[in-house]
Design a protein around this nucleic acid. Structure first.
Length: 953
RNA sequence: GCGGGGGUGGCCGAGUCAGGUCAAAGGCGCAGGGCUUAGGACCCUGUGGCGUAGGCCUGCGUGGGUUCAAAUCCCACCCCCCGCACCA
């Protein structure tokens, strides 16, 4: 049987749209669930990562819808930000790498790519394409509420404007300064994805230690000011260009580039003259605190592009310094070259100032020897530096020769030395990039301190504590994520919320800024309610005044006033207000864990700022990040899997199920193409199996086996429902697909005459249980099974406790156990018998067994077993021990079944399963009562409940 | 470094909060058998080791400990992944 999945998908997605199944409005008295997915950014196609997070929510939405809730699952698009504009520019410039990836990964036709030079075109193109994909993957979206962000959607822009005005009034938006990675050519901050080199690099603070040389200072840049006690000399690069400059009124000597950098870092810099570093050689300068006089020496490891181009030398603890010194000792040629007397280094001895476990007095020397580092240009020097830095920072203690810093921990001394030097004007700071960062435009980036930047004041203690309150009561799946949110709240500083470039909404009070992309997307779920009216044409952007939003969202101001100012009928305003109050608060928002430290936490912050507590979000779910064949997915790696391609290859249901079974909780799901193919084949089988059931001849009688199947089904329903409630979709699908299927398999294997009536009942339930995961297939099957309406609206199965049949379940446990034991014996003996004799236990053994089962602990079990045996005046203590052992090894579900089933008529059960056992095992089976006749090897007395005695001959 | 999450059998992955149901669910892979013209389809069996009677031994990152009993509880250690900001 060939199944045409494509046409099944086409058919149902079209029907869902035509019959508006997912379009929902408030319904009085009907409980609602409002589920939202963070709108995707429209600079590319949706990938399986989007699919994973979104399908998880869709499964929940479909589940809740079937449970009878009024479920709203809307969708929108994020246009705000810089990457689209950046991409458009790069296409304009003919960036081949980008164009190639658009062609091969996103499959964009050539003529369309040309139009991508217009960022707005590009955004709307991807929006339209991705909307199709969202429909294809089967998300149950109410499209009447769709919108996108940025000033190209003026209704949305008005909403952002309202929000920002409110936040500002509340004092949550403030001005400040901030260091950023900056491209001097583009004159703008260089974000991570705008870089050719230096991904993930962010500004770090160097301490500038000012060495005095006459009326001039030489500020050496360092992360380790505390090592000033071990300083023996200064290093400069003789070939590099330096300047003499007036910096904030003092005369400094620094590298040429450092002068430029300091200028960008709010220092007043006036360059007096430029000269080569060699000029400084032979001079002496005076160290702060120690007041030692130190020579200035040449070293070519000194990078004029890093820091100030001046380094102070601590050979005892800094590998580079030791190497540079050693290089000069081995070969004094450079000294001579610059006219220095080689004797100048004779007096320079490493000064040990830190004691640290695992090293002697001179860690730098030791490590240089150990790693066999050749000279100051050896790459291993970097590694050595890191090792010592780490070790000394965390475990080091300042030695006695460090004045009043002696015996301090290195980490403490570092702070204190800096503070003390600073207080006497002998230290300063500068920001620097720990690694080279290159802008897309190929310019090397520096650190700039931006002034007059706008910030969202997430550092505000009251705001933080409000948000903590929200986190402490919101539902979070999985629970482990809660701590993560608390940590993020503590850690969060002020957030620069405005940018100069990119798409977005202008800052209302200063339109030269644009509201930054994460900042315009924190409470937009409320806008889904407005969007419906905007899309219908009932609201025009001009109507969306501050008063409108105040009234609709917050109930502030009077209806009359809002109506007048907004030029809207009061009835409409009231309707919208009612609709908002119906859907709000958000019941569930979910995404990958990568959004926890930013978007999801911002979402919580802003809700607490703007909305009253009863409208705060009710639930959050966080999931892992999709890997592809075990690796992180990225366009540059070429392992990028778009949803489009996946659906085209395997079908939407297979993609959904593959993703859902791949992981739950915060674990990262791994996308494997083989797994998806397997899943598609499995869905084929399910489809065929249900077809086979429908093709069965009329019903045969119902017996214990049918009761068993129906009983198992009730347990499955219960387990699946529980799993879905807590977003454990993997567990839910695993049970719904595999465990339930295995039950049906067992049933079909056990019976020669399957009962159609029961199987159809099971199938109809099964299809509903699978519907949230494989909605297309399930619609098709549901209609084939004669189900009423859409399966996505069909009632979710409820477990029927009255259908749980303990006796039937216990009987099957017995049969499985007997089969297992028979096989075990065959395995041990290595023989296949012609006849197996099975002896079932006497009634008194059952009495002992059941009493023992009721006991709480193993100790108790043994006591009880013996007690009962005494009462029954039985003496066979070996058998009683075995009964006790058997009873104590039963737990969980089996225990419940066995207790509730009571005494099982094993003779009857096994006799009626005789044919089945013979069919399966291929030898004759004879069932006897323990009291019975044929027993040449005296085995029958070994029988205990659920473990009949066996004799194979 | 700080913070978050983890280490389970050939692989993926349950189980850990509430210790005994655990040689450890389920899936994949592999091996054998069946079915079949064929099968990357389907069904059955096996898949830590040992075993001529349903059992025994070893096992859940490492090392200790608590307990009648530990994958699960406690302590110490080792290792892996992710995040650390102006960015979607």
């Amino acid at each position: 049987m060939e199944i045409d999945w494509r046409s099944i998908e086409e058919k149902w997605k079209e029907k869902w749209l035509r019959e508006k199944v997912f379009e929902v409005d408030p319904q009085r008295g009907k409980p609602k669930v409002f589920i939202t997915f963070p709108f995707p950014y429209v600079n590319g196609r949706l990938h399986v990562g989007h699919g994973f997070s979104a399908v998880r929510l869709d499964v929940y939405a479909r589940f809740k819808r079937m449970q009878g809730y009024n479920v709203l699952f809307p969708f929108a698009w994020h246009w705000t930000g810089e990457p689209i504009v950046g991409a458009a520019e790069r296409i304009m410039k003919g960036d081949e790498k980008l164009i190639r990836s658009l062609k091969t990964i996103d499959k964009i036709p050539e003529e369309e790519i040309k139009r991508f030079t217009d960022p707005v075109y590009m955004a709307s193109y991807y929006m339209n394409e991705n909307r199709k994909t969202v429909i294809d993957i089967g998300l149950s979206v109410d499209w009447r509420r769709e919108f996108h962000t940025s000033s190209y959607h003026s209704a949305f822009s008005r909403f952002v404007t309202w929000q920002f005005n409110r936040l500002k009034k509340m004092g949550y938006i403030v001005r400040g300064t901030h260091p950023v990675v900056w491209c001097p050519h583009c004159q703008s901050p260089t974000g991570d994805h705008d870089r050719l080199e230096g991904e993930g690099v962010s500004p770090e603070v160097y301490v500038l230690v000012k060495f005095r040389c006459g009326d001039t200072y030489l500020p050496a840049a360092t992360f380790r000011p505390e090592t000033i006690f071990g300083a023996t000399n200064l290093w400069i690069n003789p070939e590099a260009m330096y300047v003499e400059a007036v910096v904030n009124g003092e005369k400094w000597i620094i590298s040429e580039l450092a002068a430029l950098k300091l200028k960008e870092q709010l220092k007043k810099v006036e360059v007096l003259r430029k000269f080569e570093g060699r000029e400084l050689l032979g001079l002496y300068c005076r160290a702060p605190i120690t007041d030692r006089e130190l020579p200035i020496l040449p070293a070519n490891f000194v990078d004029p592009d890093n820091g100030t181009g001046i380094v102070f030398s601590v050979p005892a603890h800094a590998p580079y310094d030791w190497l540079a010194l050693r290089d000069l000792m081995i070969d004094p040629q450079p000294l001579k070259k610059y006219g220095l007397d080689p004797k100048v280094i004779e007096g320079l001895k490493p000064i040990s100032i830190i004691k640290v476990e695992g090293f002697g007095d001179y860690p730098a020397l030791e490590l240089v020897n150990k790693l066999n580092i050749k000279n100051q240009l050896d790459a291993k020097a970097d590694e050595a530096t890191k090792i010592i830095y780490k070790k000394e920072y965390h475990m080091g203690v300042m030695k006695e020769n460090c004045l009043n810093y002696s015996n301090l921990k290195v980490s403490e001394a570092k702070e204190k030395v800096f503070e003390d030097m600073k207080s006497v004007g002998l230290a300063d700071q500068m920001y620097e990039l720990p690694e080279k960062v290159v802008c897309r435009c190929t310019t090397r980036c520096i650190v700039k301190i931006l002034t007059d930047q706008w910030f969202l004041k997430y550092s505000d203690p009251k705001w933080k504590s409000k948000t903590r309150k929200l986190v402490s009561k919101i539902k979070i799946h999985p629970e482990e994520a809660r701590n993560y949110f608390f940590e993020v709240i503590d850690w969060l500083r002020d957030w620069a919320c405005a940018r100069r470039t990119g798409l977005g909404t202008p800052l209302p009070w200063d339109p030269s800024w644009i509201v930054e992309t994460l900042s315009d997307s924190t409470i937009y779920m409320a806008f889904y309610i407005i969007a419906k009216y905007v899309n219908k044409g009932q609201l025009r952007p001009e109507n969306l005044t501050e008063e409108f939003f105040d009234y609709v969202f917050l109930g502030e101001g009077t209806l009359e006033h809002a109506s007048n100012v907004s030029d809207l009928k009061p009835e409409l305003l009231e309707e919208i207000r009612r609709e908002f109050l119906y859907w709000y608060p958000v019941d569930l928002r979910g995404s990958g864990k990568d959004l926890v430290p930013n978007h999801l936490t911002f979402f919580l912050f802003h809700h607490t700022a703007i909305f009253p507590e009863e409208l705060w979000p009710q639930g959050i779910t966080v999931n892992g990040i999709v890997m592809v064949e075990g690796e992180k997915m990225s366009k540059s790696k070429g392992n990028f899997v778009t949803l489009n391609d996946a659906i085209a290859s395997y079908g939407a249901d297979a993609v959904r199920c593959t993703l859902m079974i791949a992981a739950e909780g915060m674990d990262d799901p791994n996308w494997r193409f083989d797994a998806c193919r397997d899943m598609r084949d499995k869905l084929n089988q399910v489809f065929k199996l249900i077809n086979d059931i429908m093709a069965l001849p009329g019903s045969s009688a119902k017996g214990s086996l049918e009761r068993w199947l129906v009983s198992r089904l009730q347990r499955r329903i219960r387990a699946i429902t529980e799993a879905l409630e807590s977003m454990k979709n993997r567990t839910a699908l695993e049970i719904a697909l595999f465990e339930l299927w295995n039950d049906i398999r067992w049933y079909l294997r056990r019976t020669q005459k399957p009962c159609k009536e029961v199987l159809l009942e099971v199938a109809k339930t099964w299809v509903r249980l699978l519907a949230p995961f494989a909605p297309f297939m399930c619609e098709e099957l549901w209609s084939m099974l004669g189900g009423e309406g859409f399966v996505c609206k069909a009632p979710w199965p409820l477990p029927d406790v009255s259908k749980i049949d303990y006796t039937a379940e216990a009987s099957e446990l017995l049969i499985e156990q007997v089969m297992e034991d028979l096989r075990e014996v065959m395995r041990a003996t290595g023989k296949t018998p012609s006849t197996a004799h099975i002896y079932v236990a006497s009634k008194w053994k059952w009495e002992v067994y059941l009493k023992a089962l009721e006991a709480s602990s193993p100790k108790e079990v043994i006591k009880v077993a013996h007690q009962v045996a005494r009462d029954l005046q039985v003496k066979d203590s070996r058998v009683i021990q075995r009964i006790a052992k058997e009873a104590s090894s039963v737990g969980g579900e089996q225990r419940e079944i066995k207790l509730k089933a009571g005494i099982v008529d094993e003779y009857e059960v096994l006799t009626s399963a005789k044919e089945f056992l013979e069919r399966e095992l291929k030898f004759e089976v004879k069932v006897w009562k323990e009291e019975a006749a044929y027993d040449p090897k005296d085995r029958r007395f070994n029988a205990i409940p659920y473990r009949p005695a066996l004799y194979l001959e």
